[in-house]
Design a protein around this nucleic acid. Structure first.
Length: 447
RNA sequence: GUGACUGUGGUGCAGUGGUUAGCACGUCUGACUGUGGAUCAGAAGGUCGAGGGUUCAAAUCCCUCCAGUCACCCCA
């Protein structure tokens, strides 16, 4: 008989138990850091009304949104593309129940109909933290701080949070004399600076039909972005260049304030870089924008992204609320943790701590009783359920599974009222009285 | 949406026109009926991505489709 094809939707994945344990570990660390910073958890439906999502993140994003429909349903639905737009809807909808400022975190899957490739999936989790209701740069500095703290707690040593401000980008456009219609392609060219270099950007700009004097003015500005120029000096320089352009002055002041606040929050200055060539594609950003790259293996793209979007909530409510936040991309973080092997040693690939063997039908109930006692003491325990399995196979099963301790409860032990435990890592065995069994296991697990 | 590369047991690969398609790892069984990682012996497991064409003969050459990977765009 023909078997049903097992394939999954493109870009979507199953997770084995060992994968899930890693994921849960990462989620746990991130959640813990978020809560340390005073962010509260929320959740929203995976489906939203189509109109809620469309037209918020840009044309490119709209094309990636999945539509979801019940055959008999009249509502036009879509799978959420990110957690930011749902938050905006959520705030406008529940403002009566929210205290401002509202700091929330949200860890949940989102869907994008993108072509999958390394570090990119069609279904993936985002971990977002946002502060609603604060226009001040102290909020943006908090966001950078929470990002840096989470990455550090996960074990990353070499990462850079890049910071820029959309107002500066706009000012660069004004300064150089780029017509509004071409601002988009201007940003796109600038964004490629790291990849294709200054000459590449110049070529790109010319190819896009920008006049030579415009290109030259632009190059003068981008040249400021030298690696060795201290950030604040560079901003002062930029301030002179953009003299008379109000938006640019504003953006620079905001960055300067952020730097001060980050300093007060003890964000290590060597993990933050002001990069006036960092753009970010989502259209709702209005001020500071952030993005993190892991600098050591440096091939997986950004692991966090965010920024300030002061107008977005205004689409769902008479008056907008100033909001800033970030998203951590758990999938890329996990790929990197795998690569760098940064997991704590206690992640063994199984939740089972003790595997209880079974000698035969006549001792099975004793094994079950012991298992139950271990569980009551909070020890993760599993009993063998196949009576015909040889003892060797049972121990092998425990070993392959990754259980740390095996319990033996055969006729001899039962007769003398004891139980024998063996720690698989070093083969050490201890025999303990039945009423001291859980203590003995705890000792073996502790080392 | 654009481009490049790749599809052979569960996984990784070999096989580039010629008998029943091989190897490694993994799986299962046994040596080992009260103790794992090692060793040895044996077994199971494949419509060679799908369809069509060329040929006496196709995993191998050609065409189409499908799928996967990577890159661009964009993004986490």
């Amino acid at each position: 008989m023909a078997k049903i094809d097992t394939r999954l939707p493109k870009g979507m994945r199953d997770f084995l138990p060992s994968d899930m344990l890693k994921r849960d570990y990462v989620f746990g660390v991130v959640r813990d850091v978020f809560e340390t910073f005073g962010f509260e958890p929320i959740d929203t439906p995976v489906l939203e009304m189509r109109d809620t999502l469309l037209g918020k993140s840009g044309e490119d994003a709209d094309k990636l949104i999945y539509y979801a429909q019940h055959p008999g349903g009249k509502e036009e639905l879509a799978l959420r593309y990110d957690l930011t737009v749902p938050l905006s809807r959520f705030v406008a909808m529940h403002e009566n129940d929210l205290l401002m400022p509202f700091r929330r975190y949200h860890i949940a899957p989102v869907w994008r109909g993108d072509r999958p490739q390394k570090g990119r999936y069609r279904e993936f989790y985002q971990c977002d933290a946002d502060i609603v209701g604060i226009p001040d740069m102290s909020a943006d500095a908090e966001i950078i701080s929470v990002v840096a703290t989470a990455l550090k707690r996960l074990g990353f040593a070499d990462f850079t949070v890049k910071v820029n401000n959309r107002k500066i980008l706009t000012a660069i456009g004004i300064f150089s004399g780029v017509p509004d219609a071409q601002l988009g392609s201007l940003y796109r060219s600038i964004d490629k600076l790291d990849k294709i270099g200054l000459n590449g950007v110049v070529k790109d700009l010319r190819d896009n039909g920008l006049p030579e004097d415009v290109v030259n003015r632009m190059v003068g500005l981008l040249d400021l972005r030298g690696e060795n120029v201290p950030s604040l000096d560079m901003l002062a320089h930029l301030r002179e260049q953009l003299d008379g352009i109000g938006l640019g002055q504003e953006g620079i002041t905001e960055l300067e304030q952020m730097v001060e606040f980050m300093d007060a929050l003890a964000v290590p200055s060597d993990s933050v870089e002001i990069d006036v060539a960092m753009v970010r594609g989502l259209s709702y950003y209005t001020g500071p924008v952030f993005e993190t790259v892991i600098t050591k293996p440096d091939n997986l793209g950004s692991v966090t992204g965010g920024g300030r979007y002061d107008e977005l909530i205004g689409l769902f409510r008479k008056q907008s609320l100033p909001t800033t936040g970030t998203s951590l991309g758990i999938e890329r973080i996990i790929d990197l943790l795998d690569l760098l092997d940064l997991y704590p040693p206690e992640l063994t690939g199984t939740v089972v701590q003790v595997l209880v063997t079974v000698f035969g039908a006549d001792t099975q109930r004793d094994s079950m009783r012991l298992t139950s006692e271990l569980r009551a003491a909070g020890i993760h325990a599993e009993a063998i359920m196949q009576l015909q399995k040889s003892l060797g196979k049972q121990v092998q099963y425990a070993d392959r599974k990754g259980a740390r301790v095996v319990a033996f409860l055969g006729p001899d032990e039962i007769a003398s009222g004891v139980v024998k435990f063996k720690r698989l890592s070093d083969g050490q065995e201890v025999t303990a009285a039945r009423d001291r069994a859980t203590l003995a296991v705890r000792d073996l697990l502790a080392e």
